[in-house]
Design a protein around this nucleic acid. Structure first.
Lengths: 202, 202
DNA sequence: CCAGATATGTAGTGTTCGCTACAGATGTGG
DNA sequence: CCACATCTGTAGCGAACACTACATATCTGG
């Protein structure tokens, strides 16, 4: 009972290429032919490794959120709620206009509305976005406990707000907004968080 | 030289149905079969009247923005920049969770990322969103001239911000956020506009 | 009532889609 | 060297896609 012929391609490198195709064309807009060409493999290798197109998307999303996870940890490590929001939104302005990647965010570009048979793709993306929102909420809960946010502040609402602005910026970026435009949006958006911050002693 | 057989269906009613299909499934996810069934017509009638699938989308977008236009006029008629933002975002929270329509906004759900051959669809939607942003910007320019916004305020940035929040709320709505969640986001978002408002005499 | 013009329903067209059968290649364990 | 297991490339599967040819039906102008 041998172990069989070994795989000739690197799964993570292939996933990076698939990620980019989904990012640029969305789940339904990306074809298997485009994916296999970008990944440098043939269809049977793709299906043997990832099951089917949706399995490939999930693997790409896993990789995307893993790469983003480290950055999100830096974000919530900022000292105050305001600094967290600023670091997050300004960072997003940079990332979503990074010419090394397609514009916008994979968790949005991947597929907001899908056709019959792919109805769960939008929910899959929403679930991943919710993870970031939860991380933000936890951070804002802490900020409130530390007296950094006002007593009247709602950490969950703040997290939802920052998440919503992030998504809006992603859509803007994908439709051509430049880095400066996104920075302006981030700059205005942070002021809402500042308005929820406690007046600190100078 | 007769005028030919008259159309047996109402174009606007048919467009309303097509609008809903695009809204729910996106441009690429919507099939001609779904569209014709919803519109109550056969493919040849669709192509004779709207040219092709993309022509139908544009006609549906025209109708959508026309319906929304009246509401946007009410929004910018609010007395202050803050009131404009509040009326806009709170209204969007209602509209995007109205069970009479699919959740979210057609100008987002229609297609953020598309496959080869439909690359211009996202730009078409972006152009329509830009119209709303322009309308907001003009209103904020006026607000600044009236002393309603601070001297340091940037009307274009504020308009972009409100537009971005709207889009973000739309995506949230389409992925299951309820009306109360959207209201919370709107409520926080308005505070950024308030922070740009001049201190008014009490 | 006729001729021209446009709309409609049936029934397809060619193409592309996601996916896979199959044969050959390349590995391991005995 | 052999049995077995897994991967790879070719080639193509059935289904669904956007779209249309064509015959028929229903109008107007004369």
């Amino acid at each position: 009972m041998g172990m069989g012929r070994p795989r000739e391609f690197d799964a993570e490198m292939a996933l990076d290429q698939a990620m980019e195709v989904f990012w640029r064309h969305g789940y339904e807009g990306a074809t298997i032919a485009q994916l296999t060409e970008a990944m440098g493999i043939n269809p049977p290798s793709l299906y043997a490794c990832f099951g089917n197109k949706e399995g490939l998307l999930k693997a790409a999303l896993d990789r995307y959120t893993k790469l983003r996870g480290a950055w999100m940890d830096e974000v919530v490590a900022a000292p105050t709620a305001r600094a967290v929001a600023e670091r997050m939104l300004m960072g997003i302005a940079e990332k979503q206009t990074d010419p090394a990647n397609p514009p916008g965010c994979l968790l949005v570009q991947g597929g907001i509305a899908c056709g019959t048979g792919s109805e769960n793709v939008p929910f899959e993306l929403a679930a991943r976005r919710a993870q970031n929102e939860d991380q933000l909420r936890d951070r804002f809960v802490r900020a409130k406990a530390e007296g950094d946010l006002k007593e009247s502040a709602d950490p969950a609402a703040l997290a939802r707000y920052v998440s919503a602005v992030s998504v809006g910026m992603g859509v803007m970026a994908s439709s051509g907004a430049d880095r400066e435009a996104l920075r302006q949006v981030a700059s205005v958006a942070v002021q809402a968080v500042e308005a929820q911050s406690a007046d600190r002693p100078q």
